[in-house]
Each structure stands twice: as C-alpha cells, then as structure tokens.
Amino acid sequence: MSGNFKEALEIFGIGFGLVIFIMVALAYIMETVGKIVNKFESKKKAEVKK
C-alpha cells in the first residue's frame, strides 16, 4: 500500500467521521432547542389565554 493511499485512508476515516459527528451534534442540539422553544412558547400562549 503506497504512502499516499494510507494518508488518503486516514483522511477518509477522520473526515467522514467528523462530518457524521458534527451533523449528529447539530441534529441533537436542534432537536433539544426545538423542544425547549416549543415548551416555552406554548407556556407563553397559555399565559396569554389566561
């Protein structure tokens, strides 16, 4: 296996891993943000109704 290919394999592993990691983190954060914001806003709406 040539040195270049070994380096490319490393780039593959780390690069694709990082893309997955960042996107999963974004998914988790936005899911959580969505829940918090919706909870807060429905609370606000309920208070206005009262």
């Binding site: 490319a8 394999l9 780039i11 593959f12 690069g15 694709f16 996107m23 998914a27 988790y28 936005m30």
Partner: peptide, 21 residues
C-alpha cells in the same frame, strides 16, 4: 422541523471520500 435529516445529509457525503480514495 426534522433534525434527523442532518444524518441523511451526512451519509450522502460518503461519495466525496470514496472518490477521493
């Protein structure tokens, strides 16, 4: 509205790395 779409967007980047290899 559907944050799990992020992971689908990540999986579709696989081609970038395969073509690089």
């Amino acid at each position: 509205a559907n944050p799990r779409s992020f992971i689908l967007g990540a999986a579709a980047q696989l081609g970038i790395y395969f073509a690089m290899l």
